[in-house]
Design a protein around this nucleic acid. Sequence first.
DNA 1: ATGAATGCAAAAACTTTGCATGACG
DNA 2: CGTCATGCAAAGTTTTTGCATTCAT
Lengths: 134, 134
Amino acid sequence: MSNQQLKDAGLKITLPRLKILNILENADEKHLSAEDVYKLLLNAGEDVGLATVYRVLTQFESAGLVVRHNFEDGHAIFELSSEHHHDHMICVDSNEVIEFVDKEIEALQQKIAEEHGYELIDHNLVLYVRKKKS
Amino acid sequence: MSNQQLKDAGLKITLPRLKILNILENADEKHLSAEDVYKLLLNAGEDVGLATVYRVLTQFESAGLVVRHNFEDGHAIFELSSEHHHDHMICVDSNEVIEFVDKEIEALQQKIAEEHGYELIDHNLVLYVRKKKS
DNA sequence: ATGAATGCAAAAACTTTGCATGACG
DNA sequence: CGTCATGCAAAGTTTTTGCATTCAT
């Protein structure tokens, strides 16, 4: 039950929030724009306003339930935050989103920041790729 | 003279294009939004429309003169394309943009893409950092 | 019952486009 | 001179906000 997740996040348990959380948990594609979530809700016969979707997703982000990414095409996508951080690869042909983790890259980023006299707070890495016709 | 760069790019030499190119070459901050460029033009007493700034920057991008980045805050910034590719570090306090290059990271990205059966087309890496109080 | 959450519509921020006028080669 | 570029204003996108109503506790 998702109730607990909302409570833990300090959010009142409301229908729109539950519905949106359910979409994020159960949709095939885990990387959704606000519009995507909105459409999935409509398709499911749920009556939730787009403004609410934006508001709820933003609250989820503040609560750490969800991560927001700004991919290059200008509009944000949201995904449930998994325990382990990961980066993304986007296929330029199919728009498929692939997740990956690489310890070495993470370490290097840390090193680079330090070498410049900075502390690494966060990062954003997206690889744009194309399937190899082996 | 910037005339040649425009010619080489296959673009007609017009005043707005020259002025914008000059801004990009001579401004202190090398990472400018369309609005920034527009304001700098106004401050310099030049009379160029914002729509033209967008059009020209987009043309420059197509011509390879300029690179467009979508930083996380949703609006695009442009910079003259230097010979050597580089990535960016942004100070979360001052919004300062620092450029850096790291061969190892570039190589790793290539490797990761390949391991997943993809060919690396492009990438986008931004580090969010904070100055160390040594 | 009270304060917070929602829905709608309006606005805001950023970017693109249509069209008449003006500039380049 | 013909064509392409410009400026303005209008429209498009994506996201946010104001406000009256509804909902959760």
